[in-house]
Amino acid sequence: MITLTNVRKSYGDEVTIGPVDLQIPTGGITALVGPNGAGKSTLLTMIGRLMGMDQGAIEIAGFDVASTASKDLAKIVSILRQENHFITRLTVRQLVGFGRFPYSKGRLTQHCEDTISKAIDFLELTDLEHRYLDQLSGGQRQRAYVAMVLCQETDHVLLDEPLNNLDMKHSVQMMRHLKRAATELGRTIIVVLHDINFAGQYADHICAVKDGRVVEFGTPAVIMTDEVLTRVFDTDVQVIDGPNGALAVYY
């Protein structure tokens, strides 16, 4: 369970995110949706302690994010940012191997190697594991980053737009991977998504953010309605019955 209590963050005088009160249940996928600039990344980076908050408290599985030692939090929560650039040339396997750092401090044991192999196989990167990241397509690279955070074996996984750069097929695959990670590996996954239909299809909970506030929280069935989506996205949205559940049409 992740609990945000009265969390606030101001960027200068103009932009304020929050106050936000939110409880994200354990298990399953929770999708953060909302327009550009709504504050999704800000919330996610604060939960992942990459950025401090001005006010309020965040607890992950009972651990206060601000006061728990970072090295202990690294075994509870992992976060992947919207954009990643590394100055070193790494292979997929070396990158994924960094996910073991909280446990191994850089001295990889056989158990670590096995976990790394598992994460790589899980995201179907086995054939690419010795390729350098700059020799991969954007989508393959995105999968490598996700493999790295999965390899960290944390119960809570925060992903900022993991479908960035992915085509139709790989977006679907990525969401299936995440769904499997949630069900088979028992992870709690919080993911920022832009395509509301992906959220509706794969998420267990949807959290809608707008102007720095959480405006809706509920199951896809509750969120996927004309009224709610139109209000959240400031766009006319019609929800129709698709072959696999509700579909939002907005163009």
Binding site: L50, S70, A74, I79, N84, I87, T88, F98, K105, G106
Partner: peptide, 21 residues
């Protein structure tokens, strides 16, 4: 500190994510 320096090459965010201050 080599092993920690290796982590630092990943940048600030990934370093914090991996539990280093």
């Amino acid at each position: 500190r080599s092993r920690r320096l290796n982590v630092l090459t990943l940048g600030r965010e990934a370093t914090i994510n991996l539990g280093l201050n």
